[in-house]
Simulated scan of single mutants.
Amino acid sequence: MLYNINPLLSPDLLHILRSMGHGDQIVIVDANFPADSHAQRLVRLDGANATQALEAIVSVLPLDTYVEAPVHTMQVVGDPQAVPEIVAEFYQIASNGPGGEVPHQSIERFAFYEQVKNAYAVVVTNETRLYGNVILTKGVIG
C-alpha cells in the first residue's frame, strides 16, 4: 500500500502513467469502445466507471499546458455541439486539478478512433453511459 494513491491506480496503470512522457496521451474508454483493436497498451479497470478512472488518473497526472487542449472527448454523432452529461463531468473533473480550468475539445468519432490508435495507452472501464471516452495529454511538472 502507498499513501495518497487512489486504489484504482493498479501497479500496471501506475507504471504506464510514470513511463509516459510529455505529450504522450492516455485514453479512458467506456465498455462499448473497441479498445482491444485500437490500443498499443491496454489496462482494464473493470470495477470502475470512466469518471472514477479519470479522477484517479488526474490525481497524479499533470495535464499539458503547451497544447491548445489537453482533454479531448468524442463528438455526438449527428449533433457535434451536444455535450452529454458524462462529458460535462469529464471537463469538471479535469479542471479540479492543481492547474484549474483545463481547455478541452471534442472531435469527430472516427478522428477520435484514429487518435486513440496513436495513444500511449488505453484504460477500459465498465462505463455504460454513451460517449464515456476521454483522451488526456500528459504535461510536465515544473
Rank of each mutant, 00 (worst) to 15 (best):
L136P: 03
A50R: 11
I28F: 00
S10I: 06
T65A: 13
R129C: 01
N96F: 02
Y113N: 02
Y120L: 10
V83D: 05
A48R: 02
P70C: 08
I57Y: 01
S106W: 00
Q105T: 07
A48G: 04
I93S: 03
M74N: 02
E85S: 07
L61G: 02
T125L: 00
R41G: 01
A48M: 02
G47S: 11
N32T: 12
K117T: 10
G78S: 13
S95N: 11
N118R: 09
Y91S: 02
G78A: 13
G78V: 14
H22F: 04
R41S: 08
D12S: 11
E68I: 06
P84E: 06
S37W: 01
F90Q: 06
A119G: 03
G100H: 07
Y66D: 14
P84I: 04
E101Q: 13
G23R: 13
T128I: 15
N32Q: 11
Y131K: 09
Y91E: 15
M74Q: 04
E85V: 01
P103K: 08
G23H: 10
V29R: 04
A82K: 13
V43P: 14
V58D: 02
I26F: 00
R41T: 10
I5D: 06
A69N: 08
M20I: 11
M74V: 04
I16E: 13
G47V: 04
Y91P: 00
P80D: 06
F112M: 07
L17G: 12
P62F: 08
S10R: 06
E101H: 12
V116P: 02
G78P: 09
P98L: 14
V83G: 00
V134F: 02
Y3D: 12
I5P: 06
E127H: 09
E108P: 01
A119C: 09
T65Y: 00
M1L: 05
G100E: 08
V58K: 03
L136S: 08
Q75M: 12
V58M: 03
V87R: 05
L9M: 04
V123T: 09
N32C: 03
V60P: 09
G23E: 11
F90S: 05
N133A: 01
L130Q: 14
N4G: 00
Q115M: 12
L45Q: 05
N96S: 15
V71Y: 01
L42P: 07
E68M: 06
A82D: 11
I107N: 02
G78L: 15
S37E: 13
V76C: 09
E127C: 08
E108H: 10
E89R: 14
H104V: 08
D79I: 00
